[in-house]
Structures are given as C-alpha cells and as structure tokens.
C-alpha cells in the first residue's frame, strides 16, 4: 500500500518557498546584519532537501535538472573571479570596493564587490551540501 503523503507534499510546497525567501533574505542581509553566504546557502539547501524529502529523487531531478557539482564549481569560480578581477584592475588579489548608486526601483542602494564574492560562497555551499546529501541518498546500499 502506498503511503499517502499528500499533507507533507502540500505543506512542503508552501513552506519551501518561505524558507527559500528567508534564505535569500538572510543572504542579502549578510553585509549589515547577521547572515551571509554561508548560512544563506545552507538554508537554501535546507529548502531543497525538504523538497527532495517530500517528493522523490526522480521527480526532483525532472523539476530541478541541475548538477550540483557544477554549482559548486561555479561558486568557486565566482569567488576566485572577484579576486582575479581585482588583479586585472591593478589592485591586490581579493581587494573589494563598494559604492552607493541610485537604482531604478530600490532607491539608493549599496553595491559592493564583496557581494559577488559572497554569491560564490553561497553557490558553493549549496552545491556542496546537495552533492553530499544526494550522493549518499542515491547510494542504495
């Protein structure tokens, strides 16, 4: 008999988006408030894990057709790229800068290159966590 997990799935559909939103918030809040790439990444991964738990691996692979190892590599490249970018502009490796710009909707917003670095961290953490968990999960031991 198949277990009826309709409640779990329904709740997950809502909750995972709340978690994802919170994760993104915490990621962007990182520069001024507690949070940042690491915890944001972990929390995003948490939302994804919840989805994977509620639905099965096969379904999720169809919905999110992403290889998380590539996400890891992308994150590492991004973090490295910000450092190399600084070199290309004639500064020491990993020099960061920031400025305030008046953006279209957001008004005066701070744009910092450190954020780019943090995106690298964010992606790496998601990739790493998901790679580990999915690898172990797929392993039908």
């Amino acid at each position: 008999m198949k277990i009826n997990d309709v409640i779990v799935q329904t709740i997950t559909k809502i909750v995972s988006f709340i978690i994802l939103t919170f994760a993104v918030y915490i990621f962007f809040a990182g520069h001024h408030n507690p949070g940042g790439g690491f915890i944001g990444g972990l929390m995003t991964a948490g939302a994804l894990v919840l989805l994977y738990l509620a639905f099965d691996l096969e379904t999720m692979r169809k919905i999110i057709p992403v290889d998380y190892k590539i996400i890891t590599a992308l994150g590492l490249l991004m973090a490295l790229g910000t450092g190399i970018g600084a070199i290309l502009l004639g500064y020491p490796f990993l020099s960061h800068t920031f400025d305030y710009k008046d953006l279209f909707i957001l008004g005066e917003t701070e744009l910092a290159t450190a954020l780019l670095f943090d995106i690298g961290v964010y992606l790496t953490v998601i990739g790493v966590t998901m790679t580990i968990l999915l690898t172990i999960g797929e392993d039908d031991y």
């Binding site: 520069h31 940042g36 960061h96 920031f98 943090d118």
Partner: peptide, 14 residues
C-alpha cells in the same frame, strides 16, 4: 572602509 555593518561577514568576505 568595507561598507558593511556586519563585522563578522566583512571580515569573512573582505
């Protein structure tokens, strides 16, 4: 110098 108020994060990324 780094434009961040979260000192921990600024140290980590900057």
């Amino acid at each position: 110098e780094a434009g961040g108020k979260n000192m921990v994060n600024v140290i980590l990324v900057d």
